[in-house]
């Protein structure tokens, strides 16, 4: 069985935003730091570093998860998506991101990458959520600027736009 020693760097291979990547990490390195410091993917933000604030939320194997509650070595062989994967191209925003801009769903933007990732995954599985569903789901995130109301409005609007796009598409 593989044993990775504490004071060495070990190769970790996984899929990041559709691309195979390989980089080195000590066993104790958190996925949040691995993404930001080793892979230079600084879109994922780090807030509380103990799983409370939700700023570092990413997608791991199709589910929303805290990057700070995951070790880099745990994602060996996994599929990870971060906020960098949301925009369909340079200078363009996803339907969800557009909705956040329209509804002022962010001010300082620190919590936004985590909330966007959570909602992106949630809206895929729940195309017609109620406001209560969204509020309950957002309880896994802290935002100290907006008071949440514009975030909820953006999520509801994005859900509607995604349903329309789905019908047309």
């Amino acid at each position: 069985m593989p044993r990775l020693s504490a004071d060495r760097q070990h190769s970790v291979r996984f899929e990041l935003n559709g691309r195979e990547v390989e980089a080195q990490a000590e066993p104790r390195m958190l996925l949040s730091d691995f993404l930001r410091h080793v892979l230079a993917m600084t879109g994922t933000h780090v807030g509380c570093e103990h799983g409370v604030c939700g700023a570092c939320t990413v997608e791991i194997d199709g589910m929303a998860a805290r990057a700070c509650l995951t070790l880099a070595v745990q994602v060996e062989g996994a599929r990870v998506r971060t906020v960098e994967a949301l925009a369909p191209g340079p200078g363009r925003l996803s339907i969800l991101q557009e909705a956040f801009r329209r509804h002022h769903g962010l001010q300082c933007g620190f919590c936004t990458p985590g909330i966007l990732m959570s909602l992106d995954i949630f809206l895929r599985a729940h195309p017609a959520p109620s406001e209560i569903d969204i509020r309950e789901y957002l309880s896994g995130h802290l935002c100290r600027c907006t008071g949440y109301a514009p975030i909820v409005a953006a999520a509801l609007d994005a859900a509607e736009k995604l349903r329309e796009a789905d019908i047309i598409g």
Partner: peptide
């Protein structure tokens, strides 16, 4: 807020 060092064993069975 970073863990102290530890060895990591990935058990397979």
């Amino acid at each position: 807020m970073k863990p102290a060092r530890f060895d990591y064993i990935r058990a397979e069975t």
